[in-house]
Amino acid sequence: MIKNILLGTLLLTFVLQSCTKRYDEINTNPNLQPVVSPEQLFAPALVNILSINMSRNYSFNNELMQVTVNMGDGDGKVFRYDIRTTWGTQPWNNLYLQLTNLKNVYSIADTSSRYKNDSYKGVSIILQSWVYSILTDTYGDIPYSESNLGRLEDGANRRPKFDKQKDIYMAIYDSLEVANKILEQSKDTITSNSDPVFKGDITKWRKFGNALYMRLLLRLSGKSEVAAAVVSKFQNIINNPVQYPIISSNSESAILRWSGSAVAAEPMSSPFNSMRVQDFRSPGLGEFFIGNLRNWNSPLIQTAARTAPTALTV
């Protein structure tokens, strides 16, 4: 009897042990995809970045630039440059998350045997450069070389070091040079569906990258320590239009067109869709902004202020 019990116990232990092999399978998440293609990450990342920037523009930049003024007379109003430290986090908190998607687009297009694609690599570099430039323009020194490496496979870096703004700008210039080269030589296609901006037109992406390059060069052209180098890079682009094609007509502009749908759940609908009517009524248009539009006889006044913004529409 005792023997049988011992035998049974041993058998059971063995059964339970072999369970643990099966447990790997049970703990594989069926709701997530372990492997995706670059195009599956690309469009949502792009749409999100734009939504983040538009929302920030509405809530913060417009106030900062005296386009709109929040009409309360209390403390802590952006248009009076009374800015609380906690209000600065929105671009940081959201754009870094999207950089993860852009970096994954690059790494998948770079290393995956199935999804190797040089065009996605080039476009990813251009968009990363754009996002990093917004971040460094906003915050100055930021994590760049060590950012977005939180994943264990990437080194589990949860506290990336801050790089100097100057070094970041120089690194972005180098990246945009690389992107221009990659896109020049790339034979890979970007599916039209996954690209809501240029419908997969790589030449246009290349032109956008170089135009961005020029804009970022202009930013540093007034800094005496780097001005000479920056100006010569700029001239190099202007003087070599074949090597550095740039945007030459309105049809080549980088525009993400919202679908115009009123359904907020529709991916290509504007982020302002989920805002309430009163969110647009509460800040008033600034005298600085509307006055100048009027003085300049700008036709934009009809777009910016068609109806009286403070009218009570009960």
Partner: peptide, 29 residues
């Protein structure tokens, strides 16, 4: 479950966009 392996989350709202499956990287490591 599922706190031990990395994966990309589906974005069903993109189902109506350009006949594809779209994903984004996870927020929580």
């Amino acid at each position: 479950p599922y706190r031990t392996s990395y994966g990309y989350g589906p974005l069903p709202m993109y189902d109506s966009y350009a006949n594809g499956d779209y994903y984004s990287a996870p927020l929580v490591l």
